[in-house]
């Protein structure tokens, strides 16, 4: 776990300094005084506890019956039960919400990547009129607050009868996903040496063939990371999901979970159980993929 690879297996160029950095001896454990060592580990343990605490607390609470979850008498474990889980899984539309979230996030991801891959490539490789404005556009659209788009998109969707449908959410999420994917993929494509393209061009490949046969296969890991990111964004989106969806068979998790804790008489016992159910699978996938995530993002960023 401790060995850090820079993401992007798609960054052969960057791999060199990384490798050398790892082999170099740094001031190590041997030279650290016990007091310093204690301080270091103490801080890290404290930080880890803070990171872990809320998760554990929610987990513990999810096994308590309702009257013990919200109660004046606090305890770690009280009358443990699986009833909250069975309620969430079998007596609510939770499984449907999960499915909806997966559908919305997956389509956002696929469509986003599909649209933006060639763009990322073109912006990375060719200097065509309109390239710089386009790049600026990607950057500016990253900062588009949903607050300005949500009303016009709502009225447009309403006109087409799309409110309360999953496509409405997918379309809304594409406003975030498309510029984001294009921006990130551009960063990745930048890190693939142009000499490969040139070699392929000498072999008589046209630009589309180069992209399809040479660059795309190399960029597969990068695309996977970008895709995963897009998926996560759509998965956790709250604002559009709260505004556009009304019936409980169409909710995504981000909105569905709010149903457990309404303004009056919140049912934290169900919320905590649902939270655990949402977090565990997402968390597992995330932990596997996370080491690749940031590096991709910053790779795109530094060269945006």
């Amino acid at each position: 776990m401790s060995q850090l690879t820079t993401p992007a297996a798609a960054t052969p160029a960057a791999a060199v300094p990384v490798a050398s950095a790892r082999t170099v001896k740094r001031p190590g454990r041997s030279r650290r005084s016990p007091a310093k060592s204690l301080l270091l580990h103490g801080t890290l343990i404290l930080a880890s506890l803070i990171a872990l605490g809320p998760i554990v607390w929610v987990l513990l609470s999810s096994f308590k019956p309702g009257y013990a979850v919200q109660s004046s008498d606090m305890s770690l474990v009280k009358d443990p039960t699986l009833a909250n889980y069975s309620y969430v899984l079998f007596d609510t539309n939770f499984p449907k919400w999960l499915l909806n979230s997966v559908i919305v996030a997956a389509f956002t991801m696929l469509i986003g990547i599909f649209f933006s891959a060639t763009t990322g490539y073109a912006v990375s490789r060719f200097n065509f009129p309109g390239r710089r404005p386009l790049m600026m556009t990607f950057l500016i659209t990253q900062m588009f607050p949903a607050a300005i788009l949500i009303v016009p998109i709502y009225t447009i969707m309403a006109r087409f009868g799309l409110i309360n449908t999953l496509p409405a959410l997918i379309i809304a999420y594409l406003t975030i996903a498309v510029p984001f994917c294009a921006w990130m993929l551009k960063g990745y494509f930048d890190s693939i040496p142009t000499s490969l393209d040139e070699a392929a061009a000498l072999d008589g490949c046209g630009p589309f063939a180069i992209f399809w046969r040479v660059v795309l296969p190399l960029a597969r890991p990068a695309i996977a990371v970008t895709a995963f990111y897009t998926f996560l964004t759509a998965w956790g989106e709250v604002m559009y999901a709260s505004a556009f969806i009304q019936t409980d068979n169409k909710f995504t998790l981000a909105y569905g979970l709010q149903q457990f804790v309404p303004q009056f008489n919140p049912q934290w016992e169900y919320l905590t159980a649902a939270a655990v159910l949402v977090t565990v699978p997402a968390g597992v996938v995330f932990m596997i993929a996370q080491r690749h995530l940031v590096s991709g993002l910053t790779a795109g960023g530094t060269k945006g």
Binding site: A158, L162, I163, N164, T165, A243, Q246, Q259, Q263, F264
Partner: peptide
């Protein structure tokens, strides 16, 4: 469908306005 009391008024209007989902 159980709809939280605190949200129903707004949800209904959002949906009725859009003519879908109410």
């Amino acid at each position: 469908q159980s709809v939280p009391f605190g949200e129903a008024q707004n949800k209904f209007k959002t949906a009725a306005q859009a003519k879908t989902g109410a």
